[in-house]
């Protein structure tokens, strides 16, 4: 039955100790870009462009390898981006160009 359980559906599996943060004493704050991912999703959701259900489906469809390799908000933005591409809200070409522009200009903007 192992093949029937999807990768994200992990309740009851064996795993190591919980790396807790001592009540928040060892917590790290989220990076600004991570909060931006959260903000983008909330705005897309409240404006009806996409649902949280679509976000989750997109995360699950990243597949086992990527799911574990990416951090939490990396999974989110990967899913959000795929869904916006699917829906035609943004296009692959403009996204690629914009990412390259931002990277080229990084550190130059005051």
């Amino acid at each position: 039955m192992r093949h029937l359980r999807r990768h994200h559906d992990m309740g009851g599996l064996d795993a190591g100790p919980v790396d807790h943060d001592h009540g928040g004493a060892l917590a790290h704050d989220y990076a600004p870009w991570e909060k931006k991912v959260d903000a983008i999703l909330r705005l897309l959701s409240s404006s009806g462009v996409m649902t949280v259900d679509e976000l989750r489906r997109g995360i699950e469809e990243l597949g086992p390898g990527i799911y574990d390799e990416l951090s939490y908000y990396e999974r989110w933005i990967a899913s959000v981006t795929n869904i916006l591409l699917e829906k035609g809200v943004i296009e692959t070409d403009e996204l690629g160009r914009r990412m390259a522009e931002i990277e080229a200009g990084w550190g130059h903007t005051p």
Partner: peptide, 12 residues
């Protein structure tokens, strides 16, 4: 049931 799509019913 074990549908391959997105569901919210945990396996366990």
């Amino acid at each position: 049931a074990f549908p391959p799509g997105h569901v919210r019913t945990p396996f366990y």
